[in-house]
Nucleic acid binder design. Structure first.
Ligand code: FES
Ligand code: FES
Lengths: 144, 144
DNA sequence: TGAAATAAGGACATGTTAGTCTTTATTTTT
DNA sequence: AAAAATAAAGACTAACATGTCCTTATTTCA
């Protein structure tokens, strides 16, 4: 569904968000540890998120990553997915035809499209704040 | 979503089914052409489908692949997916946690699970016959 | 019986995703 | 000013998915 890079990106962003509501920045090292992801590889994806403006980064001692808390309800999961995996998840033909279209549909199109649309809807309508609240309340988890 | 191998497998199976209702066997070469998939690679996936009992194969001149028409409503897309990709599509955690569970859910679990369930349902409830009818009536397509 | 047509099988090649390592740039602390 | 702590960047490696090629086995047909 999502690439490994994208899974790490979403987990990391949620963790950064949870720390940011406490007014704290989080280092790459801490993120990798708390999200159980490979450090150097996670660094790459965080760079992309930073360039996309989803997270903020600060170099130097006491640096790290953070997110403006006032933005957390405006940031949607779809933005993270778009930054890392692009939008082909919602556009690709389920059976691998060059393009998915109503004019020239594959045999699975009619059944598949609504499900894919549902996926797109939840991803576009779920905010970072939505995902973070469960984590801070202890009802959801980012690693084993 | 599905691997390339699985996409080819589903397309090929639908094409074989369409030919089988006319009582004809189809050669690998013809399948690859009509489904627009790489010959040798498609051969591999057809071997798996054959070993899984989803399609029948016959060697030699006038050989090829076919499907018992009386089975076509009993064969579900899920069987093809299972034979090629396994069932992780319906079981994997969307954010890459080791396992997806209600006891230890990731932040996306509650929203993601129903969509994944819908996908599983359509895949398990759609038969080969369902997908083949649109092809023979000309309303759906297997290649550009 | 020999040739042709087919699928099966396995070794190899290529491409993409995932991941590591090392160096550089920036900031804070001492 | 020097040292320490951090992110950024790029080259490299590993694993896996995708795809090709060649040989073998089986069947039909002339
Ligand atoms: S054409 Fe295949 S999913 Fe739309
Ligand atoms: S635990 Fe992540 S989708 Fe179920």
């Amino acid at each position: 569904m999502f690439s490994k890079a994208c899974e790490y990106a979403i987990r990391a962003t949620i963790f950064i968000a949870a720390r940011s509501v406490e007014g704290k920045r989080t280092s790459l090292k801490e993120i990798s540890r708390e999200v159980d992801s490979p450090v150097a590889f996670t660094a790459k994806t965080l760079q992309k998120l930073s360039k996309s403006g989803i997270i903020l980064s600060t170099k130097g001692a006491h640096g790290g990553f953070n997110i403006d808390p006032t933005q957390m309800s405006a940031i949607k999961v779809s933005q993270i997915v778009m930054a890392i995996d692009g939008d082909m998840v919602y556009k690709r033909c389920s059976l691998g035809l060059d393009s998915c279209s109503e004019d020239h549909p594959c045999p699975f199109h009619a059944r598949f499209k609504p499900v894919r649309q549902d996926l797109q809807n939840i991803v576009e309508n779920t905010s970072l704040l939505d995902l973070t609240s469960g984590l801070v309340s202890g009802s959801t988890f980012l690693k084993v």
